[in-house]
Each structure stands twice: as C-alpha cells, then as structure tokens.
Design a protein around this nucleic acid. Structure first.
Length: 344
DNA sequence: CCGGCGCCACGTCATCGATG
DNA sequence: CATCGATGACGTGGCGCCGG
C-alpha cells in the first residue's frame, strides 16, 4: 500500500506564501516505517525548494526548512513525521501544516483548526509538559496499542456492569472451595479484549477482569482455556502443580501480576471465585487496589509520553544540527564569493 | 560458564498542581 | 478542601553484553 504525505499549506497570518499548496510524496510508507526513512519530494516551483526529509514513524515533529536558502543549497534536510498535524517551519516565517494520508483516504483537513492552535504549535517551547499537552488530543495515543483502564471502564459502562463487580488488580481471588462445587469450574469470559473481559461464573454473576489480570489468568498453566467465536471459557482445573506460591514473589507473572492471591497455596482441587466484599476494611483495600491500578496505568502512560518527548527533542536536535550545517555552508560560500569579487 | 555491569521496563510511593 | 492525574524518585527484575 502506498502512503502519501500530503502537505496543505494553511493560510497563516505569519505565512508569506498565501496560496494553498499540496505536495504529495509517493515513495514513502510512513505507516510501515520501522526506522528513519529518507524521502525526497519537491515543493512547488515558486518555493525553489527541493526537500529531503526523514520520516519518523509514530512521531510528531516540528519541521523546519530554510526556503530562502534553497537557491543556495538546492537541497535541504528536514525531519518529517508520519504523524498528522506536524508543523513545517521555514525561516521565512511561513507555517505549514503537514498531515499524512494513505492512498485512497479522502478525509479532508480539519478546516476548523484554529490559527491559534497552529501558532501554539509553532511557538511552543520545549517544555515537557507543554509538548505533551500539544501531543495530546488523541495524537499521542495514536500509536498506542494496549488498551487502557479507561477503555476498560468504557467497556464496563457499555455493559452496564455494577461498579462493585469491577475487580481491581490483584483483587481476583480463587480460594479453596467448600465442597459444594466439584470438578472443573468454568468461567465464561465474554468480550475478551486487551482491555479486559467480562467474566461470568456459576451463580450467573459476572465481574470485570482488567486486561492485565486477564492476560495473567490466561498465562497461568493451571487454567484450561477454550475459545469459541464469541465467548471464551476459562476452566479452572485442579491445582496440581500449584501456581507460584508467595514464597516466589520474584516471579509473580507466572500467574499473577504482582500478587499471589489468585490461588491458594493448599493443594485443593476445587476453587471458588470470590469478589471483594463491601466491608470497610476490604473496601479500603479495594480502593487502594483501584488507586494502584490507575497509578500503574498512569506511570506507564507517563513513561510512554516521556519517551515520545525525548524522541521529539532528538528530532529537533537533528533539525537544528542540519540547519546549523546549512548556515555554515552558506556563510562559507558567501565568504568565498566575497573574496572572489574583492580580488577582481 | 559466571559474575559484573548497564539498560530498560515496571510498580509503588510521594508530591504537586488542577479541578470541582 | 478533597480528589485525581501527572510525574519524579526509588527499588526491583529481566536481559544482553563482556571480560575473566
């Protein structure tokens, strides 16, 4: 599939070129790029600029060109992101918004994007929080693969599951049964996604298992998983051998993310799923688990944003280094030209 | 092969600022 | 003022690399 980098120059108050222009780059596949990808494209003739760009996957970049240097340099190296709404910044003060569309995609540019927003993009300083805010609004989550707890929450709400049936991280407990249940206990997990799954068990009750819990459950070798088209049956069979005991907390992911509460240590054969009760102490524990779970997700997201921010800074470094190099070359050429004319 | 080391990702806690 | 999200700090485990 051929991807197209389509640039549409917005008429910005700061822009010097009033005519909207479109530049199509047909030799790049930004969405398939796994490493920096060199792309050549040519701006409209009146810009006298032939541009060589570096496509960075899943990044938003501030793109700087030196259009007024083009007659001298012929070629300019800029960084182009495959992320939409990147900004092309020229030394003439023109502001151009870059977006990436795939072939066949005909979604139009958001005309209602305010000049203020674009000016903010242009003038933003490299503040971590500021850039992260700029990167926000859906863009920064574009490359996000994993589902978040908010997605899980939305999934919950869409299923109208009572809040008390939500199991925070580590809250799912499978304890030894009282003998009323024999044999294999089957948990029916519906709507299983990376964000979690709705789990039904014997008494027709259901609860929500967050994605990580779900994955951990599936990873447990003591569980037999039968998958059908619409539902996934999770059978809890006898515990022999047992899941990792609390004596091995250094290896918690074998069965549980951070706790060993999924299973008892006793080698019993029957297990009963119990949810948190509403008693005060356990309610506090549940709140704590919820807080930890949210903070876990927040920390994950924060690190992801931080990495993206670092990449953005590295892109800027590359841009500025190239610009600096171009200016040095220009200065050198002008000096030579000056000395030549002076000698004549 | 093994220990040391560096890097990375993660979870948790503490703290701060925004918000209702 | 309580709550919540964001983030720095810290500790930990996994993993790859490298030298002995």
């Amino acid at each position: 599939m051929e991807a197209i980098v389509e640039e549409k120059c917005q008429v910005d108050p700061l822009a010097t070129s009033p005519d909207p222009q479109t530049v199509r780059v047909t030799n790049s596949q930004p969405h398939l790029v796994t490493a920096a990808n060199i792309v050549h494209f040519t701006l409209p003739s009146h810009t006298h600029a032939q541009v060589q760009s570096v496509i960075q996957p899943n990044q938003q970049s501030v793109i700087q060109t030196a259009a007024n240097l083009q007659p001298m340099l012929g070629k300019n190296v800029i960084l182009v992101s495959s992320k939409p709404n990147s900004v092309i910044q020229t030394t003439q003060g023109s502001l151009q918004t870059l977006r990436v569309v795939e072939n066949g995609s005909d979604d139009s540019f958001s005309e209602e994007e305010s000049p203020k927003k674009r000016r903010d993009l242009l003038t933003r300083r490299p503040s971590y929080r500021k850039i992260l805010n700029d990167l926000g609004g859906g863009e920064i989550t574009e490359g996000k693969v994993e589902h978040t707890s908010s997605e899980a929450d939305s999934e919950l709400s869409s299923h109208s599951i009572p809040y008390h049936t939500v199991l925070p991280a580590g809250a799912l407990q499978i304890t030894s049964g009282d003998g009323t249940q024999t044999g294999i206990q089957t948990l029916t997990m519906t709507n299983a996604t990376a964000g979690g799954a709705i789990v039904q068990y014997a008494q027709g009750q259901e609860f929500f298992v967050p994605g990580k819990e779900f994955a951990s459950i599936l990873a447990c070798p003591q569980l037999k998983v039968e998958e059908s088209n619409q539902t996934m049956e999770l059978s809890v069979s006898s515990m022999s051998p047992r899941c990792p005991s609390p004596e091995t907390p250094e290896n918690p992911t074998k069965c549980s993310p951070e706790s060993s509460e999924y299973f008892t240590n006793s080698p019993v054969e029957f297990y009963q799923v119990v949810t948190q009760s509403n008693s005060t102490g356990e309610d506090q524990a549940r709140k704590r688990e919820m807080r930890l779970m949210k903070n876990r997700e927040a920390a994950r997201e924060c690190r992801r944003k931080k990495k993206e921010y670092i990449k953005c800074l590295e892109n800027r470094v590359a841009v500025l280094e190239n610009q600096n190099k171009a200016l040095i070359d220009e200065l050198k050429s002008l000096k030579e030209l000056y000395c030549q004319q002076k000698a004549e």
